[in-house]
Design a protein around this nucleic acid. Sequence first.
DNA 1: TTGAAAGCGATACCAG
DNA 2: CTGGTATCGCTTTCAA
Lengths: 293, 293
Amino acid sequence: MKVARELNYKPNKIAQSLAIGSTKTIGIMCFDLENNYFASLVDVIEGIAKNEGYFINLILTHGDPKKEREGIAYLEERHVDGIVLFSVCKDADYSTYLQSLGIPIVTIYNRISEDFTFIGVDAKKAMRDAVKYIAGKGYERILFLNAKITSKKKQGMNVYTLQERQDGYLQGLREIGLHDPIVLEGLDEEAVSSAICANSGRRTAILCISDMYAVSVLELCKKKHWDVPGDVGIMGYDNMDMLQYIAPRICSVGYDVHLLGKQLVTVLLETMCSDAPSSDHMMDYCFTDGESL
Amino acid sequence: MKVARELNYKPNKIAQSLAIGSTKTIGIMCFDLENNYFASLVDVIEGIAKNEGYFINLILTHGDPKKEREGIAYLEERHVDGIVLFSVCKDADYSTYLQSLGIPIVTIYNRISEDFTFIGVDAKKAMRDAVKYIAGKGYERILFLNAKITSKKKQGMNVYTLQERQDGYLQGLREIGLHDPIVLEGLDEEAVSSAICANSGRRTAILCISDMYAVSVLELCKKKHWDVPGDVGIMGYDNMDMLQYIAPRICSVGYDVHLLGKQLVTVLLETMCSDAPSSDHMMDYCFTDGESL
DNA sequence: TTGAAAGCGATACCAG
DNA sequence: CTGGTATCGCTTTCAA
């Protein structure tokens, strides 16, 4: 040991990994970091993984399924011990391909199949309750603003969470006896405006797939000089930090990102040890009150 | 090759790295990803590095010098080919220690020493010009709101960029003949309010170390019912995306984050090949006009 | 062109 | 408890 110190010996983790067959590395496959939701989650995961002695290999897909496949191949070659996967791919082949790798995988945001543990919020339930929450504020007409889910589907992309949220909206609407669901896809100002205007005198709210959409709708309302929440109600999803700086404060669906990251890593580590897939974890959520409803 | 395909052969990058002595991996040592500025930059770096065939090992320090030192040690053990370093450490020993590792390092945000290539915006010049820009809008009194630079210094932290920005402010003030610099440290509402109020009838602007501080000052002004930009002018730094959703639109110092990331990776790759430290790159910046001045 | 052997830097087993 | 050796999977060199 004395000689080792004198020669300034440093163990070579590469050789160690090769010999021991484990890299002590976790791969994170994520969309992007521009979105604060993803960035926060990666931030939390890194911290917890590091505490547990694991390193992070980060790969971003920017929504490109090809990049995801390539990224998975890289992670396989690099022999990461586990993967946190925000997937944009979806087909049966992909699921069996992932399964064949024999690498523990935990999915988040989009589910791939029942074969992989999923950690997240029960988006369907959250949106169903959000509809009731909005109705409770006296709105008689509730629109849903989704991303361009149909075209994403056509491109063979994974739209699990978008679909869940939309289904939750539809279910919520049925349960409160409103039978004219209106789903908008993408932020086309014309389309959104005319949908809002066709209200036949009923107070209208718009439930958005995410806070970014909600913020854009708010911008639109300001431009059109519509009063929020008087003329138009707005609700977002994710409760991003940024909302607190925007007036009026947009109501949103929030959850504990730190806890989510914690569970993600815990379950992944569990899977890595026991070699058996763990059960899903559904997080709690809560509505953050604001001035937009 | 046919047999290889049949047996579904996949090269083992770990063994390859060991044999070849290169991991094709770049380490990114960064503060956090909560800050959109850092998150964007990491996002850009990942994309460009991947295009060049390099992988990302991400380590976050959350401003803790101890975590940075540990992180560097990990990256050394893992034999990354190069490091992008957002440093919070600063002392002569640290610089020579890093030098002794023999790993190509490019620094950003905070400079460590002349021995390491630095890529970034000339913050001193930017702030000096910002003072003139503000003065040009008719303000006769300009305050500077910094982070808690003094206490960070005492803790032995690297405050290079904070100091540069502050020095730029001081220099700009001298050059336009204003001789009462007022530097505030940290967002103490009391202190900021009273500094703003002690204006002796002169129109007052507050130049902030970053957009987050600028946004908070705006919040404060709203709470105090001060008119922006009538009573108080505000200017930020970084020109974060978020500003476009906040009214009034805060003026800021912007620059091309994508280009910054591109240069970072390019220079790092250059250093990795030639083995000689490259020269610094100073980015252009521009003032984004808004409604807060 | 092909094949065999030595190394990269650790771990792990087995005899002494 | 110590010291030698095979192994991990690949690159590289050298000989055939």
